[in-house]
Structure formats: C-alpha cells, structure tokens
Design a binder for these strands. Structure first.
Length: 322
DNA sequence: TGCCAGGCGGGGT
DNA sequence: ACCCCGCATGGC
C-alpha cells in the first residue's frame, strides 16, 4: 500500500462561506460510501502521483501526497476540485427563472461540481452509456473496489480509482466489474492516455470543440461521453452532454422538438450548458426517463432524499449498488 | 419472459 | 442528414 505524507492542513470554512459554497452538499452529491460518510469526504487530487485530501463538511482539510509537493499548489488543486472559486452567479441567475432548474437553484445554490481527472471522467461517462443511472454507478463502484488500489493517508486508508496503467496491466477486472461491451472502450481510453495520445495538459488549452474532437478519436467515446468527461475533468461546460433523457425532458419542458434541444439548450445556458445538465440529473434524482417525465408533469423538480440511490443519496446506498 | 436503460459505431438510404 | 440495428448487463 502506498504511503502518502501530510503536505498541508487548514480550513476552507471562511472562503466557502464567503462564496456561498455548501461543502456538505458538494461532498455528498454523486459520491460513494467509501469516499464520504456524511461528515468527512475524500477528494482525489491526483491519481498518477497520488495525492488526496480529506475534507470535513465544516471545511477542515488535510492534504496527503506520495511525493513532496508545494503546499500552496496542493491547496490550489483542492480548491479547484471542489469548485470553491468557481463563480456560479450567472448560472444560478439563469436557473432561477428556468422551468427545469428554478427549484434546484433555490435550494442547491451551494452545490459545486467535484472534479476528477479527465481519464476518470471518461470512465464515468462510458459506464453511463446505454445503462440506467443505477447500473452505471454500480459498474463504477465495482470497478473501483475490484482494482482495490489503496493508499494510507495519515490515519485514513483511502481507496483510489485505477490509473490507465492499472487497467492495462489487468483489463480482465473490467469484465469482472460487469462493464460488458464497455470494457474494450475503457481499454482504448487507457491506451490513449498511456501512449500520450491524450493528455490533460495538452487538451486543456484547446477550444471545447477541439477537446471534444480529440476525445472522440477514441472508438467508443462519442459526443455524450466526451462532453461529460470535459465537464467532470476540465470544468469546461460549454458543450452539453445531451442524451435521450435530457432530450426528452427538455423537449417537454421547453416545448422544443427533440432534434432542436441541443441548440436550444446551448442558447439558454451558454457556457454553463453541461453544468445545467448535471444539475438536472440531481434535481430529478437521476430517475429513469419514464419517472422523470412524470416528475416534470407534477412539477416535482427538487431532489427527494427518500429516493435511494440517487445522486444525493448514493453515498449512503452502497448496498443497493453493489 | 422479454424489454429497456443518461450511447455508440457501422451499415444503409 | 437522416434511419436502423446490435451490443453486455441488470432490473423489472
């Protein structure tokens, strides 16, 4: 097991409060039980040169890294992963007068997207392809647990997602994790990162369209997966990951033909397009389309914490997604 | 039991 | 620019 050393300690409480960030909500949304327990969360800052932060809902944090790291750089990275300095003012202002997201904007203004690496964002996207939310997160959970990459960070034993190299060393685990035909796509993504064809640093400087194109060069990565990964890994939200779920809901809510949903969505949400898609999945508890449409008809557009698992409750629903 | 789910690529027209 | 199909797997 890899030993990580303490490189920084402090509190984000004041800055979070000043910026209206709710760390409890931010840590709980779309998280697993082994990374969040209702009180403290693990944030993976770097997979390749492992570095993690343990953050409490009141803002205390400790950052641990495998190699000596500039504490200021580590804290910058933590703040970025938690979206602390991302100003969502414009997004929330649009959302407050939006049919789909006004309830979300009223109650979840403190939510920020937790980012991951681009590699991991792609894996998340692939696991959502042609599967229910529940199945997708079950696959991801099994994937992480099966590779079982562990590190010691102070008193905490932390589970890390596999690196591209881990996947290439033992691709059979993907099948054990029940990824089905998605396994070969994950292998191709891992090869692209290991071979340097894709690299986060190079892609980050490109335009959103160019990033999407580069990611789609991997067979099995289409528009949805590329755009979701850009949002999760790079905090680039310009291009919405429009799937049949969003297409149907937006078509109904806005009275727009399905084939025009993407254009309409981008016109409405601009540089917040992908964030709005992710927010909608939270608002409707990522329920299957049929139920999500019923919720829309009834105007039930705020998360229902009694639904398990959902983006909000996934962290306390490990048994349902095993 | 079939059918379908937050896609995708490859084939057709 | 469309339309259509198959694809691993799990839940209902």
């Amino acid at each position: 097991m890899e030993e990580l050393r303490l490189v920084a300690r402090g509190s984000l409480a004041r800055d979070a409060a000043e910026r209206g960030v709710d760390l409890g909500v931010t840590l709980s949304v779309y998280n697993f039980d082994f990374w969040f327990d209702g009180c403290r969360g693990v944030v993976v800052l770097d997979l390749d040169d492992p570095c993690v932060a343990v953050v409490s809902v009141d803002g205390d944090y400790a950052v641990y890294c495998r190699h000596p790291t500039d504490p200021r750089e580590a804290v910058r990275r933590l703040r970025w992963c938690l979206g602390i300095d991302e100003d969502l003012g414009e997004f929330l202002s649009i959302a407050r007068s939006d049919e789909l997201l006004k309830g979300f904007a009223a109650r979840f203004s403190g939510w920020r997207l937790r980012s991951s690496s681009l590699w991991w964002g792609l894996v998340v996207g692939v696991c959502q392809q042609n599967a229910s939310f529940r199945q997708g997160w079950s696959m991801l959970r099994k994937l992480i647990v099966s590779y079982g990459r562990r590190a010691r960070a102070g008193d905490n034993e932390v589970l890390l997602p596999p690196r591209p190299r881990d996947v290439l060393e033992n691709p059979a685990v993907l099948t054990e994790a029940r990824l089905g035909y998605r396994a070969s796509t994950v292998v191709r993504i891992a090869e692209a990162f290991e071979g340097g064809v894709l690299s986060e640093e190079k892609l980050a400087s490109l335009s959103p369209e160019e990033i999407e194109g580069a990611l789609r060069s991997v067979k099995g990565v289409g528009s949805y997966t590329a755009r979701l990964a850009m949002a999760l890994g790079l905090r680039v939200y310009d291009l919405p990951p429009v799937d049949r779920w969003v297409r149907a809901l937006a078509s109904r809510a806005y009275g727009v033909p399905e084939r025009e949903v993407e254009r309409f969505w981008r016109g409405r949400w601009g540089r917040w397009s992908a964030l709005a898609v992710i927010a909608l999945t939270i608002a409707l508890d990522a329920q299957p389309l049929r139920k999500a449409l019923e919720r829309l008809e009834k105007g039930e557009l705020v998360p229902d914490p009694s639904i398990v698992p959902s983006p909000l409750t996934l962290w306390r629903a490990s048994d349902q997604t095993r």
